[in-house]
Amino acid sequence: MAGNHNGGGADGVRGVAPAPVGRGALSRRTVLKLGVVGIIGAAVGAGSTAAFARLARTAQPRYRFFSEAEAGLLVDICEQIIPRDDVPGATDTGAIQYIDRQLCGALRRHRQAYREGLESFRRTCLQEYGKPFQDLPAPGKIEALRAIETGKAPGALWGGPSAKAFFSLVLAHTMQSFYGSPRHGGNRGYASYRMLGLDYPQVVGQNRYGKA
């Protein structure tokens, strides 16, 4: 499909480009050569664009800040903080999207705390429970997280933020994602407002013309 239309592009070039050269200079040969150049050019343009677009699509990382491994761990932590029940939880409502996006914006100053904290968290789980957090059974995850929350995790592994500080950071950001406006990346489908029974948008008239 694209090929047909490349011809259209070349036609345009053939019709327009030689005009400034002047009548005498525009031999049949020149027009022919220009046509060939135009067709090759259009093909190169279309081809490289297509290749670039394909490259962009395949090279697309899912997150701006986190690695896949970090994101996987953090999603699991957030899901313990706001688990799915009959209404969506942190995973479904985009907690990771909120945190990932804001770490490139307003929450930029917490980047290092996340990078170091997640690594400390990972190593804590391996050392204390012998397996990654994601592989723990559900009650085990909650127990592990509680140990982090209360600062019972081995301090030696927490060289960046303390375990407590890291937990309260993730807790705050998960709450923000779930209860804040969807425009920031979380609270997908206004899930938390619906959970609270909070009308969104609020149904409110303007009381114009003196009608109460």
């Binding site: 313990q80 903080i81 706001i82 029940d85 909650i142 938390s192 959970m195 609270l196 029974g197």
Partner: peptide
């Protein structure tokens, strides 16, 4: 409790 299932239940029960 400030998180987990208990947090959600609390929010639902007491927000209003």
């Amino acid at each position: 409790p400030s998180w987990g299932k208990a947090h959600k239940d609390y929010q639902r029960r007491f927000y209003k």
